[in-house]
Amino acid sequence: MNVKLWFLIHKWTSLVCTLFLLMLCITGLPLIFHHELEHLLEDEVAAPAMPADTPMASLDALSQSALAARPGEVIRFMFWDEEDHPHQTFVSLAPAQDAKAEDARTLVLDSRTGDLLDEPGPPGGFLYIMFKLHVDLFAGLPGMLFLGFMGLLFVVAIISGVVLYAPFMRKLDFGTVRRERSSRLKWLDLHNLLGVVTLVWALVVGLTGAINTLSPIVVGLWQQGQLAAMTADYAGRPAPEQIGSVQQALDTASANAEGMHLSLIAWPGSQFSSPHHYGVFFRGDTPLTSRLLQPVLVDASAGHALEPEALPWYVQTLLLSQPLHFGDYGGMPLKIIWALLDIVTIVVLISGLYLWLGRRTSAARRVEEINNGGQEAQP
């Protein structure tokens, strides 16, 4: 493939995705520090202080407390975040298991007493707007897939830029910025240099971002694949009219996940379980395994657990890519590095637009000069 073709690939992939990538970089910057900004901007409710040996309430008692707070609704999920919200249980309820996401509400309960600590209203605020713009442009799945396509174009633009930069640098020392020449040439050198400096980071963020946009499709594949295979013996059976104890389901599942920590419980009929099972999800305690989940399905009527299976590779890839996309593996130092690289990428994108617009302006000026010269030469 010759240099001219690589130039055209780089030019058009960059032009198509630049404005959207610029938006993603700007909205992604505050999301890198979303935990810290949540503490700063939002009114958080903390569980009251109690003796350290205060026992946890039964999950059945917590379920009853949640249902009493929102009568006529059903529980979809119960989840925990002990690192940022100790002694708090989050319960997601909706009018029905298949209700739209916007119809669901989340209650915050004290894990030890079952008392209602908070009932947040519909999502909103600065971080919510940044998140929705970054994830789906407020357009749902079509918006997610569109941004995923922009991410793939960004990856192609990076690869083609590297191919073009290699022969270009044969004539110059690496990192050369010709400040004594024209402003446009200086920005061209700076654009190329910064693009190479952020190369690996941009590829990682671009690829993980594209993977993250496939999350609804990945969940659907898991439901139709592994989940359907694990629950094949229940196919065709009517859903149970009464489900058993969620605490008993947790106790049964815990025996199949020793050394792991509880992360989420999905009620029968919800997105992450079957109509006949509780889906109990555990996570590890290392920086890597804490991002991965191990599901255990427990029969909601009989109370026995199905043989656990590790999640398929495509689900694990999604789980690992989500925190990597925002630099959420190494604490504040990695977040700061991610933010600095994000800012540098913004400079690369803006300089690319400047170079393209400057090139078009220069070409238009030359055409105008030629036309004017031709008119003056006429008698």
Rank of each mutant, 00 (worst) to 15 (best):
residue 244 G to D: 05
residue 47 A to E: 07
residue 279 G to Q: 05
residue 237 R to N: 07
residue 5 L to E: 00
residue 21 L to W: 00
residue 67 L to W: 08
residue 197 V to I: 15
residue 333 P to K: 10
residue 136 D to A: 09
residue 34 H to R: 12
residue 211 I to R: 01
residue 114 G to R: 06
residue 224 Q to E: 12
residue 278 Y to H: 07
residue 6 W to A: 13
residue 319 L to A: 11
residue 52 A to N: 12
residue 186 K to C: 12
residue 140 G to F: 01
residue 374 G to L: 08
residue 137 L to Y: 04
residue 192 N to M: 09
residue 109 L to M: 05
residue 98 D to A: 09
residue 16 V to M: 03
residue 359 R to N: 13
residue 308 P to H: 09
residue 104 A to F: 01
residue 221 L to P: 01
residue 161 G to I: 03
residue 45 V to R: 04
residue 40 L to H: 08
residue 18 T to L: 10
residue 124 G to F: 13
residue 237 R to K: 15
residue 254 S to D: 09
residue 184 R to F: 12
residue 146 F to V: 02
residue 92 S to V: 10
residue 121 G to S: 14
residue 341 L to C: 08
residue 256 N to H: 15
residue 361 T to C: 03
residue 219 V to Q: 08
residue 58 S to R: 04
residue 299 D to K: 02
residue 256 N to C: 13
residue 36 E to N: 00
residue 289 T to V: 06
residue 146 F to R: 03
residue 90 F to D: 00
residue 234 Y to N: 07
residue 299 D to G: 05
residue 241 E to A: 14
residue 139 A to Q: 14
residue 122 P to W: 06
residue 347 V to P: 06
residue 119 E to D: 14
residue 29 L to F: 15
residue 122 P to A: 15
residue 286 T to Q: 08
residue 164 L to G: 10
residue 163 V to I: 15
residue 147 L to M: 15
residue 245 S to V: 10
residue 93 L to A: 00
residue 312 P to G: 05
residue 165 Y to A: 15
residue 82 E to R: 07
residue 279 G to E: 02
residue 159 I to R: 03
residue 130 M to W: 00
residue 99 A to L: 08
residue 316 Q to G: 15
residue 321 S to W: 07
residue 87 H to E: 08
residue 350 I to W: 05
residue 371 N to A: 15
residue 365 R to I: 02
residue 153 L to W: 00
residue 173 D to Y: 13
residue 226 Q to E: 08
residue 260 M to E: 07
residue 355 L to D: 07
residue 292 L to R: 10
residue 244 G to E: 01
residue 130 M to C: 15
residue 292 L to C: 12
residue 223 Q to T: 11
residue 60 D to L: 03
residue 196 V to W: 01
residue 225 G to W: 13
residue 191 H to E: 11
residue 308 P to R: 06
residue 122 P to R: 10
residue 314 Y to K: 04
residue 18 T to W: 02
residue 14 S to D: 05
residue 379 P to Q: 14
residue 312 P to R: 00
residue 161 G to P: 04
residue 210 A to D: 08
residue 228 A to V: 09
residue 41 L to G: 06
residue 352 G to L: 04
residue 205 V to L: 04
residue 213 T to D: 05
residue 34 H to V: 08
residue 56 M to N: 07
residue 28 G to K: 06
residue 298 V to D: 02
